[in-house]
Simulated scan of single mutants.
Amino acid sequence: MTTVLTVSGSLRAGSTNSAALRTAGVVAPPAMTIRSFAGMGDLPHFNPDDDHDPLPPAVAGLREAIGAADALLLCTPEYAGALPGSFKNLLDWTIGGGEMYGKPVAWLNVSSSAAPTGGAGAHDSLRTVLGYAGSLIVEAACARIPLSRNHVGQDGLIADPAVREAISRSLTALAAVGTPDAR
């Protein structure tokens, strides 16, 4: 059984990033458990002086969730050509704990086709931060799946079969590396 932690880089209620990750929970292979981290908004501003035990509860929860996962699937928007500040803050809190080291990680890029750079700036920034964290980026599981808000149904999920299949392929590729026996 592979446990994948999903983390949305968006705090927006109607986020297509969050919808894609909720949909991942529905289309995941049977041997995969999807857990979502929803505490990004609760994290304090990162300060290296505070990166010691006892950790702020929200930070301890983040690190515990990452440590318990076999792999991570991220999905983030781009703001001002880079990662949103709240998501960068979350990633900053992961560096000192070491839970990300060697952890298989992939991301979905759901920027709409109208986005000027297609989210490339955010994903370049993400690649840099994950490199510092020592994460194992699973390129075969990273995917660009352009979405717009009208792809998201009333239930907060994406019903489009092609989108669901693309998300499922990403999860399958992540599981191939994220399964503890595969490492």
Rank of each mutant, 00 (worst) to 15 (best):
L108R: 15
R127H: 11
K103L: 06
P116Q: 10
T117G: 02
S113N: 14
G102W: 00
V129D: 07
P104I: 00
D124H: 12
L130P: 02
N109P: 06
L130I: 07
A122Y: 04
S112Q: 03
G131C: 09
G119E: 05
S111H: 08
G102R: 02
L108I: 14
G102P: 08
H123S: 07
A106R: 07
V105Q: 11
T117R: 15
P104V: 05
K103Y: 01
L108W: 06
H123E: 06
G119Y: 04
A122E: 00
A122K: 07
H123Y: 10
G102Q: 06
G119F: 00
K103W: 00
G121C: 13
L130M: 13
R127P: 05
V105E: 11
G102L: 04
W107P: 01
W107F: 03
P104L: 00
G131F: 07
R127A: 10
L126N: 11
G102H: 01
W107K: 04
S113I: 13
K103V: 02
P104A: 04
T117Y: 04
S125M: 06
A122W: 06
P104R: 01
S111P: 03
A120N: 12
H123F: 04
R127K: 14
D124A: 15
A106G: 12
N109T: 14
P104M: 03
A106W: 00
A114C: 08
G131N: 10
R127L: 10
V110C: 04
G102C: 02
P104C: 02
S125H: 15
S112G: 15
A114K: 12
A106K: 14
V105A: 10
N109Q: 09
V110G: 10
V105L: 08
A114Q: 14
A115H: 15
H123K: 10
A106M: 03
V110L: 12
S111G: 01
L108N: 13
V129L: 13
S111F: 01
L108S: 12
S111A: 10
A122D: 01
N109C: 13
P104D: 01
S113Y: 11
G131Q: 07
G119D: 01
V105D: 08
G118W: 09
G118T: 11
A114I: 14
V129W: 02
H123W: 02
S113A: 15
S112W: 02
P104Y: 00
S112E: 11
L130H: 09
S112F: 04
V129Q: 05
A115G: 00
K103G: 10
D124P: 08
V110F: 01
L126V: 08
L108H: 06
A120E: 12
A115R: 02
V110W: 06
G131P: 08
G102E: 04
A106Q: 07
H123D: 02
G121R: 15
S125D: 14
P116L: 10
R127V: 05
G102A: 05
V129I: 15
V105C: 13
A114Y: 06
S112L: 03
V110K: 09
S111D: 07
L126S: 09
S111L: 02
G131M: 07
A114V: 14
A122Q: 01
G131L: 03
G119H: 00
G121Q: 12
G119Q: 03
A114F: 09
L108D: 14
G119I: 05
S112C: 03
A115T: 01
